[in-house]
Design a protein around this nucleic acid. Structure first.
Lengths: 343, 343
DNA sequence: AAAGGCTTTCAAAGCGCTTTGAATGGCATT
DNA sequence: AATGCCATTCAAAGCGCTTTGAAAGCCTTT
């Protein structure tokens, strides 16, 4: 059933039927009802491609997945984020499209998205320091919002970010207050902007207390479980091992815990652990009492907020960019305790 | 730059330019080269919506995400699966579209997808026992493939599944061979088809050895970490606790491990654990020696295989459905050992 | 020289919708 | 009765592409 057929059945022109269904005022109330009834009855709904071609809008939001770090897509954090965004899209009648882009080819990818008119806007995920995508998208005039920020990207753009510097500073201070001095940082990938900010917060806290940072206690890589385990095991074998560890995600924290337990140590007693907790639905930080002391900020919620922001930008592209900085809570769980005394 | 402009620049008709770019034979070789050069130079690429409207094909694959169990989307397993499929789509020039569908509304969702022509085919994920989607899609004539199977769905359809029954039977036998008799099953959601099959395999193995299954040792729910932890703690508190546990995924197995350790017990000695391992990239089952003894089958690979199968079906919709049954390996890790002797 | 057959190019229709600009008819106004 | 104004409805153009059917041009054949 298409518009032509429907209008023939009704004995009306396509114009009138289209207008009736799209809520235009210049249609007789009675006619509108007839049209709506017929549309329901014949299970009519307009062809998205045709609508899209005629209006110039695709009602689709793009998420570009760089293929080199396939991980980005696979990342459980990404899953929760996307679920949050998808909820908003659904409510507003937008679809969500993923483009799998081979790395280095991002400029082309975005140019194509714009050119081909596949999407009305995009969400930029996992911004790096000085991320080139921001400049490209600004130049193309394709509406976008960024999940996180990119230090060094000159443009003024819209973003939603967690105050990573502050939350990791607080977490570090919390450990310092407990008497810890050998505090390790198991960070995310070095070139990710959020990782830089977390490290900055960590270093800031140490500096303010006069603790000299030890490069041997600062690790960074993709935040897998195996990585958390590996680095922890490695550091616990040092002659002067850490008494506390800051982990970048629940997933690596699980690896951290595994390594601590394998070493015959007790978490929260021999070694304290604080992790960032994105409130992943499949990896909740315990039910009532948190498993880990954690800096907590829902990535699902961030997805929602960003999606709403993007839809606003699509509606009004000329409005000045918005920026939202979310503060993470510091929740105290059972993975932290006073620094062990006596060596 | 659109086709019209490009053809005017070249002094050719749109027809010829279109044909040149799409590799039709009836174009002079020299002309083709000129056209291709101009297209490159002016950064031309055809508008997807227009192409799509003209050809009737959208070059997009749909993944429908039921909203009630938001979890499905958020599921880390889903992430890896989708990454596998996305790789194939990318190679073949397809995009991937997610529709967020409020539950119970799936029939409408698919009808719309078909009607609106948004997608050329869909992948059905997380089939339940007697899943209604299969009948709907068959009726609509929208090409689809299923990740898993649906017992009771009458139709003949294409699927890729892991031999869940056999792999859980083998895992159970492995534990029985080690002398375990109190074997618990921490399964996925009861109405999921895969969960049924796993349970069937588990029960089959018990029956063959004359072990009476104990309902108190059979749990099922969404496979989160907290769930694995909760059920394990609960069962370990029984007067006659299990000496071995079968878990449905790495994520719940992590919760199982946490509960065992909290109870002061040792995994692989006091309590043996076998999990299914989907080879999630962020939750690898250890590096060299597996953390858990596991039934292993890559969900990323399954994603690839299904995507390829779907593209074949889109190409040749009339071909008889294909079915692929993947066998899981049983890999032995450090989480299993002989049943503890003496009470 | 006319006929026939290739190769190459083109004009125009069509995909299914939205939207512009015009037409129609009923009613109140003069 | 003629005029003007709304409220409705309509025909047709246009979105940017593909594809059909026809035409043009050049050889070869008779």
């Amino acid at each position: 059933m298409n518009l032509k057929e429907l209008s023939e059945i009704l004995g009306l022109s396509q114009t009138t039927v289209s207008r009736a269904l799209n809520g235009y005022p210049e249609v007789n109330a009675e006619t509108r009802e007839r049209v709506e009834a017929a549309a329901r009855k014949h299970n009519y709904s307009p062809n998205r491609r045709a609508t899209s071609l005629a209006t110039g809008r695709s009602m689709t939001i793009g998420h570009v997945i760089p293929a080199s770090t396939q991980h980005e897509m696979v990342n459980p954090i990404f899953g929760d984020f996307v679920a949050g965004a998808a909820g908003v899209y659904g409510e507003e009648g937008y679809d969500m499209l993923f483009s799998h882009v081979t790395d280095g080819d991002e400029e082309r990818a975005y140019t194509d998205l714009k050119r081909k008119g596949t999407v009305d806007g995009v969400i930029v995920q996992g911004p790096k320091v000085n991320d080139a995508r921001i400049e490209v998208l600004t130049r193309l005039g394709l509406p976008f919002v960024v999940h996180g920020r990119s230090s060094g990207a000159g443009q003024d753009y819209s973003w939603v970010d967690v105050n990573n510097r502050r939350s990791f500073k607080r977490a570090t201070e919390f450990l310092l207050d407990l008497g810890h001095r050998r505090i390790a940082l198991i960070n995310g990938l070095e070139d990710m902007d959020f990782a830089q900010r977390r490290r900055a917060g960590y270093l800031e806290a140490l500096a303010e207390r006069g603790v000299t940072p030890d490069p041997a206690l600062m690790r960074s890589a993709e935040m897998t479980e195996v990585y958390g385990h590996h680095e922890t095991r490695d550091m616990l074998a040092l002659s002067d091992p850490p008494t506390a560890i800051l982990a970048a995600s629940m997933i690596s924290a699980i690896g951290v815990r595994r390594a601590i337990e394998e070493a015959g140590l007790t978490i929260g007693k021999d070694v304290s652990v604080i992790t960032h907790d994105d409130e992943l639905s499949y990896l909740r930080n315990g039910q009532d009492v948190p498993i880990f002391t954690a800096t907590r900020s829902s990535v699902h919620q961030a997805g929602r907020v960003l999606a709403e922001m993007l839809l606003r930008r699509i509606e009004e592209p000329s409005v000045v960019p918005e920026q939202i900085l979310l503060e993470a809570e510091l929740v105290v769980g059972r993975s932290t305790g006073p620094a062990p005394t006596g060596d």
